[in-house]
Nucleic acid binder design. Structure first.
Length: 101
DNA sequence: ATGTTGACCGACT
DNA sequence: GAGTCGGCCAACA
């Protein structure tokens, strides 16, 4: 059984619609009483495929992973219709999920 | 129990 | 835009 905080984080991530993205801080607020850092840590430890972790990016609209994982995440986002610029950055004003609050 | 570390954020220079 | 700093809190050695 995962901790309560993690459960809330995962639940929040699952609410992100396809083709949309959310920031760590945003998830942290929706989950409630969780630090943004905890969200990143929770997703790192995550291995559950029912959670769309790839739709979670940092406040700058960039993918926070390096190496292959980052490449994979970018590919999955593009596959859902999210556009990324040359720097691998997402236009938050346009793709940011506006639910949850 | 203590000290580091980390898929972060916001404010400041 | 780029670099620094403090705050956040759980996992790990």
């Amino acid at each position: 059984m995962v901790s309560d905080s993690y459960a809330r984080i995962y639940a929040a991530v699952r609410r992100i619609p396809v083709g949309r993205v959310a920031t760590y801080g945003q998830i942290a607020r929706v989950a409630g009483r969780v630090g943004a850092r905890q969200v990143g840590y929770a997703l790192h430890r995550l291995r559950d495929e029912s959670v769309p972790w790839h739709r979670v990016i940092n406040a700058r609209g960039e993918i926070s992973l390096g190496g292959e994982a980052g490449d994979v995440q970018r590919a999955m986002l593009e596959g859902e219709g999210v556009e990324l610029d040359a720097r691998g950055r997402v236009d938050l004003e346009r793709y940011r999920w506006r639910g949850g609050a």
